[in-house]
Simulated assay, not measured.
Amino acid sequence: MRSLRCAFYDAGELHVAEAGAEPGPAPAAPFASLTKLFTATLAMQLAFDGDLDLDLPVGEYLNEPPFAELRLTTRHLLSHSSGMVCDGPGDGGLRAAVAAGPLFAPGTAFSYSNAGFALAGKVIEAAAGVSWRNAVTDFLLRPLDIEPAFLAADEIPRDLAPAAAIAGTVTDLVAFARLHLDDRDASHAALLDQEAVRELAEPPFDTLPFGLADGWGHGWARYGNGADRWLGLDGVGAGATCHLRIQPERGTVIALQADSAAGLGAWQDLLAQFRAEGVDVAGYAPGPAAGAAQDLSDRVGQWANGETVYRIRPGADTADGAHPGATVLVDDDGMEYDLTGRGERFFAARHPRLPEVEHLGRFLLDPETGRADHMQFGGRVLRRVA
C-alpha cells in the first residue's frame, strides 16, 4: 500500500490525515461501489422533484427490449431487493444480466447487485432526460462543490457506470456525506428534502442483508440499531479501497481511501482506533451459527449468481482429503471452505488453514416444498442450478 488518506468530520470540524501521499492536492481516486450512494441519492432527488416514481415498474420508463417487460421497481434496485444477478454473464453487460432472469421474486430477499444499480442508472436517464453522468454532475456533484471525475470506459463499461464509476477524494466523500446528516445547512437542505434523507436510510422491504450488514436502505448499508445506528458502504475496485461511515444524529463522518486492497486491513485498524478513543462506530458482527450440526449432503451441487458459480461437494473429493466426510464449498476463485451445517438453514464456512475465521451463510427454503433452492453467502443469493 503506497498511500492512504482519511477524513474525520465531527462537530462541524474537518480533520484530514495522509500517509505515503505525494505532496500537493489529493488526486481523484476510485469510489468503487460508493458510487451507488450517489446514484441512490440522485434517484431520490428526482423522486421528490416529481420526475421519478420509485414504485413504478421500470418497464414504464424503458420501452425497449429486454427492459420494457420488467415489473421490478427502482426501489427494488436501490435496495438490492430486485432479484437481479450481481453481474451480467460474460461481456454482455446489463442486457445479459436482465436476460439471465431473476434469482427470486422482487422484494422477497436481499442480493447485492451491480447490475441492479446499472439498471437504476438507465431509469434515471429516462426520467431526467440526460445521461446518468450529466445528471449526477449537474444535480449532485457540482452543487456540492465536488469536481466531477469518472473512471474511463476501458476501466468500467459505460452501462455499469452508475454502480462504480465516480472518483474523488476523502474530502469529496465528506461533502457528499454532509448532505445526509441531521445537522444540515440551507444549501444542503435545498438539494435534498429532509424526508428524502430519512427515506434513503430506511429499509423499504423486510429483506435481511445476511452476512453484510444489519439492514439496507436505498444505497446505504445500516450498522447497529437505534441511537447507535451508523450508515455506510465499502468499495473495492480498480486496485483501491474506499470506505465511508456516517452517524446522522451526531453529525459524524469517517472516510478512508487506500491505493491497494491492503486498505481493508487499514480500515479495520482505523475503526478500532476510533472506538478506543470513544467514537463508537457500529459494525456488523453476526453471532456464531447456532444449532446442532446438520448433514449437508442434500446441498451438494452447483449454485450460481450470473457468472459467479459456487460448488458444494463432499469433502472426500478435496485435493488433500483434509476432512473426509465433511462438506466443502468451492468458490469461483477455486478457494475451498469446510462447511458445517447449523440448524436447518445456516452454515459456517472455514478455510482449513484459518479455522478460527468463520464465514456465515444460510439456505433460503421454498415455503411450499421446504427445499433449499437458494443460498445466501457473502451478501449474494445463489440459485441451485445442478
Results as ranks from 00 to 15, higher is better:
258 A>L: 05
233 L>G: 10
172 D>E: 12
186 A>G: 06
264 L>A: 06
233 L>R: 15
239 G>W: 04
173 L>T: 06
270 L>V: 07
167 A>R: 15
255 A>I: 03
263 G>R: 08
255 A>W: 05
213 A>T: 05
214 D>M: 06
165 A>C: 06
178 R>Q: 11
192 L>N: 05
262 A>N: 08
275 R>P: 00
163 A>T: 06
159 D>S: 12
172 D>H: 11
174 V>N: 11
257 Q>D: 04
244 L>H: 04
261 A>T: 09
271 L>H: 03
225 N>Y: 05
223 Y>G: 01
218 H>W: 02
255 A>V: 07
166 I>G: 11
237 G>K: 04
251 G>Q: 09
218 H>D: 14
254 I>V: 15
262 A>V: 03
158 R>N: 06
237 G>C: 01
253 V>Y: 05
250 R>L: 13
233 L>W: 03
197 V>R: 02
273 Q>I: 03
165 A>N: 03
197 V>Y: 01
161 A>H: 13
226 G>L: 11
240 A>S: 15
193 D>W: 02
196 A>H: 02
232 G>F: 10
246 I>R: 07
244 L>C: 07
261 A>M: 05
233 L>A: 09
224 G>L: 15
240 A>W: 05
236 V>C: 00
208 L>H: 08
262 A>I: 01
271 L>M: 13
265 G>W: 03
275 R>S: 03
184 R>L: 07
157 P>Q: 13
210 F>P: 02
186 A>F: 01
161 A>E: 15
209 P>F: 11
165 A>M: 08
268 Q>H: 12
240 A>R: 05
204 P>Q: 14
184 R>V: 11
153 A>L: 12
250 R>A: 15
153 A>C: 02
212 L>V: 15
209 P>W: 11
197 V>D: 09
207 T>I: 07
166 I>H: 13
